[in-house]
Design a binder for these strands. Structure first.
Lengths: 100, 100
DNA sequence: ATGCCTATCGTTAGACA
DNA sequence: ATGTCTAACGATAGGCA
């Protein structure tokens, strides 16, 4: 008889970066990756002494946020930059001019 | 004569998550990790169909931002949530109640 | 500062508890 | 939904161009 030997784990699988069709799978992936994103942000804050604000609207449209030091402070500074460090404009995801 | 054989690369080194003392090294790490953070955010948007806004103030205090669909839209929604999806309050990095 | 390169480290897909 | 486990995938430290 064909006895199936179950492999203990195939480890991480490669996935395409397209919308996950399965709802519960999407939920699990969201939780894991959102946590991963916030961890990366936290590390970047510590390593480089920078300030970061993140807002994520979940699949259920609930806001998750990360802020160091304070998300509201950073939003305020982003919306109305202080004249001393005035950028030419707000940047988008795309390329950004070199650092000072 | 003591001929030094240079290793081609030691690959990625383990580093402690503390402020990087060397200035130029910090700058390089910032660039790489900031790009990595934005890429992760982009993937999360695509995979899970969610909306994300990120603002990073660089070591030189310049604002770098990521926004999908639009960072200003998301900031606005975060600051004044629509009644239909009203959260009890804004959340911080810490734990968040379960998804709907 | 930006890109390429390699070896290695850290993240995470999938399965289960 | 939240944590644990494994193995594989992807990010990235350091070095050089």
């Amino acid at each position: 008889m064909a006895m199936q030997i179950k492999k203990p784990s195939q480890g991480r699988q490669k996935i395409a970066i397209t919308k996950i069709p399965n709802r519960s799978n999407l939920q699990v992936t969201f939780s894991k990756r959102c946590a991963g994103l916030f961890k990366k942000a936290s590390e970047l804050c510590t390593l480089c002494g920078v300030e970061i604000a993140i807002v994520v609207f979940s699949p259920s449209n609930k806001p998750f946020s990360f802020g160091h030091p304070s998300i509201k402070t950073l939003i305020g500074r982003f919306l109305s930059p202080s004249p001393s460090s005035f950028p030419s404009s707000t940047y988008s995801t795309s390329s950004v001019p070199q650092e000072g």
